[in-house]
């Protein structure tokens, strides 16, 4: 059942005649999931930074 369907790796990447359609779609999928992961991480960092700034401001007020 698990048999590589292509003669060579080059043929796999060419995926004749539909490589132009298949590969960009998977690239886009990777881009979307990777991009959303990055956006989440950035939002998380920004939230932490915001809390940090607030904490610093509170400390300068107290001293």
């Amino acid at each position: 059942m698990l048999e590589f369907q292509f003669a060579s790796l080059a043929a796999f990447f060419e995926m004749a005649p539909h490589g132009v359609y298949v590969w960009p779609v998977y690239g886009l999928g990777l881009l979307v999931i990777g991009g959303l992961t990055w956006v989440n991480a950035r939002q998380h960092r920004q939230a932490i930074r915001m809390v940090q700034r607030n904490l610093e401001r509170e400390e300068t007020h107290e001293s």
Partner: peptide, 28 residues
Amino acid sequence: YLVLGSMRAIVLERERRATWVKELVGRA
């Protein structure tokens, strides 16, 4: 995975005035 990640960031943002968030960030 993506939804949980996004939710964590939003929770932190919305709860930024809560004590537990301040403690969490202060510790780090």
